[in-house]
Simulated assay, not measured.
Amino acid sequence: MKMLTVALLSAIAGPAWAQSHAHAHTDAAPAAAPAAADHSKMDHSKMDHSNMDHSAMDQSTMDHGGVDHPQMDHSTMDHAAMGHGTAPVAPREPIPEVTDADRAAAFPPINHDAMEHAPNVHSLLLINRLEHWDGQHGTGQAWEAGGWVGGNINRLWVRSEGERSGGRTESSDLEVLYGRSVSPWWDVLVGVKQDFRPADSRTWAAFGIQGLAPYKFETSATAYVGEGGQLAATVEVEYELLLTNRLILQPLVEATLAARDEPEHGMGAGLNKAEAGLRLRYEFSRRFAPYIGVSHERLFGDTADYHQAAGEHTRDTRWVAGVRVWF
């Protein structure tokens, strides 16, 4: 009986003692936190960073060894000692100076034989002016045309110009010339010229040059040696000013000179004729372009006197309208 009583008291007192023991631990002061890890003594090389969750770290509270990065003066750092390196002041391999041999290699002389890429023969016919004019002393027609056939270096040139007035041909000529390219922009010409006039047909030996002068001036200068030793020359300069891709303004200046007087041919020494024109054309295509313009002609010196004595006018201003085509 006594033993049964002791067992009952133990069963009743056990839970009560456990509950009071738990309250005693709750009311007591919390246990001290474990000491902070000393990172300076930690061997980071043995830590497995791949399994660490860096996103959960509070970077703002981490102590990076007392380094205050915003207050650091990077300009005083010895980057060479830190392993970053510095750019060299001078190139490791100095750039050599340009020599005359380098310039000669960059701009070699033109090899005309190499420019003849193929034996194909090409051709062009340009009617630069085919126009009707209305001047102070009448009306008429005029033309100027030229063409060539050949390769890139050697060509056969044909040129012609003339004028009609009052239903008859006042002047006309035909030139047949051999041309050879002496540079990318210039050709040298040699050949013959034949004048066709009602009472003054003459044959000339012709020597000249034509091409594109600086600033894109189309230039032609030809000297003529005629019968009886007469020397004459013609110089023509044209320029094309693109107002739009199709609207083009073309000024022209042409002058004729002679070495000596020839009254029988109405030709005086020195500058005997000059023409200045301005033509505005519209290119419906590159091959076909109508134009309008104005032209002024004037005779000088003894040439003017000879024509005036024959009852002809020595100057004239003309309005012109025509077409420019090429094939």
Rank of each mutant, 00 (worst) to 15 (best):
K41D: 01
L212K: 07
A13C: 12
T303W: 06
F107L: 09
P108T: 01
T76G: 10
H307K: 11
I110C: 05
F207M: 03
Q210P: 02
H84N: 13
R129I: 02
S123E: 07
L299N: 13
P214W: 05
R202N: 13
W143K: 05
A24D: 14
L125D: 06
T317G: 08
A304P: 01
A11Y: 06
G311K: 09
Q19M: 14
G228H: 10
D187F: 00
L231M: 12
Y291L: 01
P70G: 13
W326Y: 09
A145F: 09
S295M: 04
D134P: 05
A321S: 12
A16L: 15
A274T: 15
N51Y: 02
S285N: 14
F300Q: 08
T76K: 10
W185E: 15
G147Q: 02
A233I: 06
W204C: 02
S55N: 11
F300E: 07
A11M: 12
T169C: 04
L257C: 04
E262V: 08
L156R: 01
H137P: 14
R315T: 10
L177S: 02
S10K: 15
Q308V: 00
A221W: 11
E262Y: 04
A29G: 13
R260K: 14
N120L: 11
G277S: 15
A199W: 06
Q71M: 10
I292W: 00
W17S: 15
E175D: 09
I127D: 05
M77H: 10
H49K: 12
D43V: 01
V98W: 13
N154H: 14
W133L: 05
A304E: 09
L125T: 13
R103H: 05
A101T: 03
I248Y: 03
H21G: 10
W157C: 02
G135L: 13
D43W: 06
P263I: 01
G167L: 01
T222K: 14
A28K: 12
L231C: 04
P30D: 13
P15K: 09
G65F: 10
A199M: 05
Y178T: 07
A205D: 05
L177N: 06
D78I: 10
A80D: 14
G322M: 06
T303S: 11
F217Y: 12
R287F: 07
W185H: 06
G293A: 03
Q59I: 08
K2F: 14
A90V: 08
G301N: 08
L280T: 12
G167M: 03
